[in-house]
Design a binder for these strands. Structure first.
Ligand code: FES
Ligand code: FES
Lengths: 132, 132
DNA sequence: CAAAATGATACTTTTATAGTATCATTCATA
DNA sequence: TATGAATGATACTATAAAAGTATCATTTTG
């Protein structure tokens, strides 16, 4: 079971790499060379990071991407939300319909609790904290 | 993101249902009627529960399945292991090869910690505890 | 022996993840 | 001002995992 998918993982690596030269504009090609991520996939991820305001983008010749936020302001949970959708462990699987037991269900309550714990942990993990 | 897949979930329902008449031998058909699970899928799940020693199976006419363990001895984590494989959140995604950073990686360490917490919680959840 | 059950196992469908391709737009600069 | 080097937008394809189906063999009871 994966808590973190590949695109989130790549995003982490990209950002952690970029912060080493925080004022440099990186092209997709630059990053491909360093990070071993396939060019078109990397491109997609960069575009998404841009749309989500984490990177600044410059079009045209000499363009590329620039880190927009401090690495200490970017949290793992943000990236997970961006690439994996809202984090939730406790959806009932009962035949897709909303479950009749949904309020009383003990299992759901326990899952909610775990979900709460994970969220609180994930909230605290900034990319900065992964590098220190 | 799902912590619990459909087959595990169905297994929980099956066992929680069977415990209401702990000495009754249930056929697959009996359970289909009550549990709204497609017949062949239910059958597969029952076969797996049997192989894993949670149900006793009787072949032939008048056969069926009988709960073999007390519901208080069956833990959610057991079912997850059976249907979902060994629980692990913290595998590195780095290009499938074992990752060079695997020992020093901070992210992995944090995931390991969360994994540990989840395991400890899951270990404590018996099916019995979901019913009380 | 026939009917009614499970055993074993292989197959198919659906969904999610991972990855690719392509044309449009922008910008620097020769 | 045309060209090439970059991103924007978006649609597509491939792979893997989950969910579900099908089928023939075996066992048991009546
Ligand atoms: S069975 Fe539906 S929420 Fe638990
Ligand atoms: S990058 Fe491989 S274990 Fe973290």
């Amino acid at each position: 079971m994966k808590l973190i998918t590949r695109d989130t993982d790549y995003a982490i690596r990209i950002l952690c790499f970029m912060v080493e030269e925080p004022n440099k504009i990186f092209t997709t090609k630059d990053l491909v060379k360093k990070l071993n991520i396939p060019y078109p996939f990397l491109r997609k991820i960069l575009q998404i990071l841009h749309k989500n305001n984490i990177l600044e983008a410059f079009k045209g010749k000499r363009g590329g991407f620039l880190l927009k936020k401090s690495i200490d302001e970017i949290y793992l949970l943000d990236l997970m939300n961006i690439f994996q959708g809202k984090f939730s462990l406790s959806q009932c699987l009962f035949k897709k319909k909303p479950c009749p037991r949904i309020d009383s269900c003990k299992l759901r309550k326990k899952l909610k609790k775990m979900e709460g714990y994970l969220l609180s942990e994930l909230k605290r993990i900034s990319l900065g904290s992964l590098l220190k």
